[in-house]
Design a protein around this nucleic acid. Structure first.
Lengths: 163, 163
DNA sequence: AAATTTATGTCAGTCATATTGACATATTTG
DNA sequence: CAAATATGTCAATATGACTGACATAAATTT
């Protein structure tokens, strides 16, 4: 079986201009999500814990199902991470007052503090990125990112962010 | 041991305005990276394979060390994924002509075609997002994302993207 | 009231992707 | 020739995800 000829010409941005944004998204997100790692390591937590703590702090009293819908993972995947956060006192479950099947998720004071520590370096990075851009730069960035979200999710996400 | 009081007030965008971009980045990236999953599943590959195929197509003849520096993972993590791509004929290794310790990475025609199929839905999403924004919108988005990259990496990344 | 659906949790097994640490080989450089 | 470099590999482990099956309690529907 003969060896295939290696392709020596790069895929260029001339033939595919969207590559610029595709790669900028990769590099920007790579560095953006690495910010909280230092803090997480101190608590023996991973990025999955960060996401859970964050959204529970943003939406206290949310249901488990709501969290799954945001994270787009299965309940089995969420299970372990959520349990650890509850066992170590960062998140609490309260039975739903109307529908008692629900276990509404709330951060504790400790959970709130953790989220703030995790968010801080990311907020810092964003402030630094926005500084040279002016207010229109911020608006344009928000507009672009909002349009990158699935159309079917867009309104729901906009509402969750603004709430 | 008394139960901690659950915190009932949400972390609000009023006290932390950067939350808007923090969350938009999460949601946008979540949907953006899910695009190629359909294609990847047909080939029994995962997102790690996508990243490797992509950067080798963008930088044919790159060294393994260059790839590790982009992905920010260890060579052990890369190992299995790269081996699978080589064994199935999407990527080839060619000994460096000058420094024969190097194994320069090239896509095959098959590897080039795969990358193009994977990139297509992402490019599509970006075109759709840019459409309502006009050329300044694109420039603003690129500028913001570039500033989100670690300052120490920024020039290198800019050069790699433009090359 | 009984049957069904919903919200949640759990058990078991598996897979994909990542890690650290140690060691091996070939080759280049000082 | 010694040291440094580029790469690969072995082993053990962690993390985060999956499918599928089953269990419980509570709400809703019939």
């Amino acid at each position: 079986m003969q060896r295939d000829e290696p392709v020596k010409t790069p895929l260029s941005i001339q033939e595919q201009p969207e590559l610029v944004l595709i790669e900028l998204l990769f590099y920007a997100y790579r560095d953006f999500v690495s910010d909280p790692d230092v803090v997480l390591a101190k608590f023996q937590f991973g990025r999955a814990h960060h996401r859970v703590v964050h959204f529970v702090n943003r939406h206290p009293g949310m249901r488990v199902a709501d969290l799954l819908d945001i994270l787009k993972i299965t309940k089995q995947s969420l299970g372990r991470v959520l349990k650890q956060l509850i066992d170590t006192g960062y998140i609490e479950q309260v039975p739903g007052p109307v529908d008692r099947r629900q276990r509404l998720l709330y951060p504790t004071a400790k959970g709130r503090a953790l989220d703030q520590r995790l968010t801080e370096p990311q907020a810092q990075r964003i402030r630094a990125a926005l500084a040279p851009l002016g207010p229109e730069g911020r608006i344009a960035a928000e507009r672009f990112l909002r349009l990158m979200i699935d159309p079917a999710e867009r309104d729901k996400v906009t509402q969750m962010i603004e709430h």
